[in-house]
Design a protein around this nucleic acid. Structure first.
Lengths: 253, 253
DNA sequence: CGGGCCGTTGACACAAATCAATGTCCGTGG
DNA sequence: CCACGGACATTGATTTGTGTCAACGGCCCG
């Protein structure tokens, strides 16, 4: 009966229900959220550092990065968000942006007012729980990035990142070659791994020996287990094959 | 009238109210949480990797680290938690531990059953909000750690860490020298910054020229602004001087 | 007294940064 | 239609920051 005002909110709901259990009624509340789509070009902040934000952004399409800088202007991407992710969901509870958000390729983003999210989160504990949980998964990825940048050499770092993205894109990894689009330049890869673009280039050259090709923003991996090995990759932290959970017992339907 | 069953839960409440606004009634719910204190020795996991946890840990005293590893056994500390922190609050919503928790020095930890936390979080939206917010502050720190490890050299990394800890300990920074206890070995510092213990040692030697001394687990900084400069430190992300917030309008007292 | 843990130091190796130039592709405007 | 500029990729030569290996010293505690 009640339909999504925006066709895309279904994907927002899908994201939440992939890890959390929501009742019909709760699902409808999500689908009824107001939202409006925004297009954003590559390399243009759509959330600026220090800004006070009043809406959360849901990535409908494209790749979004969370950008930080050091004093010398060295850029560091602290998170990548693919279609289906909610890069700044945390802003619902912590509205001052401490990082900028920027699309790496052109992207479409759905803006959902904090007001509306807060309102249903307050009324439906299970929704609050689902949102909180979603934030925590991003946080676990963040922790693994610290490990990646802190304790792996360039080859492993890049491999690890490629593995992570393949998994997050839910690419089929049973048949070779594993292929997927990754709209990142070598400079982006450098910003994400804490390396120099030049060095990324050299590492990618070396990785070709191991059956990893990146051409025209398409990654192709001929030997997945090998890359997993090189990247020291264990997908557990992504919480992808985890059964959805619900903690809030008092479900209201 | 209602008193805390454990004297220490007051500090747990203080932590939450430092960033969130809770009504009297909500505060009482927090103070009434069941909890029991646990002592933990240094270098001994009190939460193990992969473990299914059924309680959250609140640090009453001591320094706790969140430890991760790469395949070669290289250790990386992905978070440090001081007295007043809740290292694995996220486990309420995501109970499988993806990192180990370990005290760096001996520590006292309060264990609070998930059950109890979930129950009040479901009944009091503002409590859920406060818990969620607390998690997000940790997450912002994590993001800055990625920047630290990814885009700063050894000298800056260590300086940045020292600045961060000074702020989190709320050490007085108006008078020189800035001094505080930091129960970390040089190996711990290395694990936190993605460096080698040997190199940490050299950097610390060099930092002495800049008026930074660490002796007997006590840090002494004779020129705070200088260290801030070296460490490229901007405390904004710590959300320390932020006014407490409440989003949930429907306060029930 | 002896054994660990921790800090310290030196010589050397090596991964990655830096500097600089060239190549390729592609869209745009003359 | 071609010339040009810009973004991105590629490569080589060289430097530099950090890791590695190894040894030694201080200190505490059993």
């Amino acid at each position: 009966m009640v339909q999504a005002q925006q066709p895309n909110l279904q994907r927002f709901l899908d994201r939440l229900t992939s890890r959390s259990i929501l009742s019909e009624r709760e699902q409808r509340e999500i689908l009824d959220l107001p939202a409006h789509a925004v297009h954003t070009r590559a390399n243009e902040d759509f959330v600026r550092l220090g800004e006070q934000v009043d809406h959360a952004s849901f990535v409908v399409e494209g790749l979004v990065g969370r950008f930080d800088q050091n004093a010398n202007g060295g850029r560091q991407i602290t998170a990548l968000h693919i279609a289906g992710d909610i890069p700044d969901l945390f802003s619902v509870v912590q509205p001052t942006a401490t990082s900028a958000l920027q699309a790496l390729s052109s992207a479409t983003v759905l803006r959902i007012p904090h007001e509306a999210i807060r309102s249903i989160a307050a009324r439906w504990p299970a929704i609050a729980e689902a949102l909180w949980r979603d934030c925590m998964v991003d946080s676990m990825i963040l922790a693994q990035w610290v490990v990646n940048v802190g304790r792996r050499d360039a080859r492993s770092r890049i491999s690890h990142l490629l593995c992570e993205m393949a998994c997050r894109y839910k690419v089929d990894r049973t048949s070779a070659p594993v292929m997927f689009d990754l709209p990142m330049t070598q400079t982006h890869l450098a910003d994400a791994t804490g390396l120099t673009p030049v060095h990324v280039n050299r590492v990618l050259r070396a990785l070709r020996e191991d059956g990893v090709e990146i051409r025209h923003r398409t990654v192709s991996i001929s030997d997945w287990p090998k890359l997993v090995e090189i990247g020291d990759f264990d997908p557990g932290y992504l919480q992808i094959d985890t059964r959805p959970e619900r903690i809030t017992l008092r479900s209201a339907t």
